[in-house]
Computed example of a mutant assay.
Amino acid sequence: MTRPRYTAPMPDAIRHQLRAGHHPARAVPCPHCRAAAHKPCVLRKSGRRLPQPHPHRVTAWVLATACCPACQVTPGVPCHHDVHPRRRQEAEETA
């Protein structure tokens, strides 16, 4: 006897609540190891999964989600020099 498979898409709000134990940076793809969104970062040579995302992925998440209070840029726009610590703090507070 086979069970029916339900294929209704899961709303994003519920999906993020179920993944509450993961770092919020996993919502974006990793530019370092090319891990897809919502997948863990891996070591490029051995393929071993990492418990925390790469710093490049965290930076990409910060740029995609937070406004910078120091240089007044919107999400998706990089800071004028480097990512400011205040922008990282704002991204972590809103997550």
Rank of each mutant, 00 (worst) to 15 (best):
residue 30 C to S: 01
residue 15 R to G: 04
residue 38 H to L: 08
residue 11 P to W: 07
residue 17 Q to L: 09
residue 10 M to V: 12
residue 9 P to E: 11
residue 23 H to T: 10
residue 10 M to A: 09
residue 38 H to Y: 13
residue 12 D to I: 10
residue 38 H to K: 03
residue 30 C to T: 00
residue 23 H to C: 08
residue 26 R to A: 01
residue 5 R to I: 15
residue 16 H to A: 10
residue 24 P to T: 05
residue 25 A to T: 10
residue 38 H to T: 05
residue 4 P to C: 01
residue 17 Q to T: 13
residue 35 A to V: 03
residue 40 P to A: 07
residue 7 T to Y: 11
residue 20 A to V: 02
residue 27 A to L: 05
residue 13 A to Q: 08
residue 17 Q to K: 15
residue 5 R to P: 09
residue 23 H to I: 08
residue 29 P to I: 00
residue 35 A to F: 03
residue 22 H to N: 13
residue 22 H to Y: 12
residue 35 A to D: 00
residue 6 Y to M: 10
residue 10 M to C: 10
residue 12 D to A: 14
residue 25 A to H: 13
residue 36 A to D: 15
residue 10 M to H: 06
residue 6 Y to P: 08
residue 7 T to M: 13
residue 31 P to Y: 09
residue 6 Y to A: 11
residue 27 A to M: 06
residue 23 H to Y: 05
residue 39 K to D: 10
residue 37 A to K: 07
residue 29 P to R: 03
residue 20 A to K: 07
residue 6 Y to R: 14
residue 15 R to K: 11
residue 32 H to S: 06
residue 14 I to R: 09
residue 6 Y to G: 14
residue 5 R to E: 14
residue 36 A to H: 10
residue 3 R to D: 14
residue 29 P to E: 02
residue 32 H to E: 09
residue 9 P to D: 11
residue 37 A to I: 06
residue 27 A to Y: 01
residue 9 P to G: 09
residue 40 P to I: 04
residue 5 R to G: 10
residue 6 Y to F: 12
residue 11 P to F: 07
residue 8 A to D: 12
residue 28 V to C: 08
residue 13 A to E: 12
residue 15 R to W: 05
residue 7 T to S: 13
residue 20 A to H: 12
residue 3 R to V: 05
residue 22 H to D: 13
residue 34 R to H: 12
residue 40 P to W: 05
residue 7 T to L: 15
residue 20 A to Y: 07
residue 5 R to T: 14
residue 23 H to G: 05
residue 8 A to K: 12
residue 12 D to K: 11
residue 3 R to Y: 14
residue 34 R to C: 02
residue 26 R to Y: 15
residue 14 I to C: 06
residue 36 A to W: 02
residue 4 P to D: 05
residue 38 H to I: 00
residue 2 T to I: 07
residue 39 K to L: 14
residue 15 R to H: 09
residue 2 T to D: 13
residue 29 P to Q: 04
residue 16 H to M: 09
residue 39 K to W: 05
residue 34 R to W: 00
residue 30 C to H: 02
residue 21 G to W: 10
residue 17 Q to V: 04
residue 9 P to A: 13
residue 32 H to N: 04
residue 19 R to S: 09
residue 29 P to G: 02
residue 9 P to S: 12
residue 39 K to N: 09
residue 13 A to R: 10
residue 25 A to W: 10
residue 15 R to Q: 07
residue 24 P to A: 04
residue 31 P to Q: 13
residue 4 P to N: 07
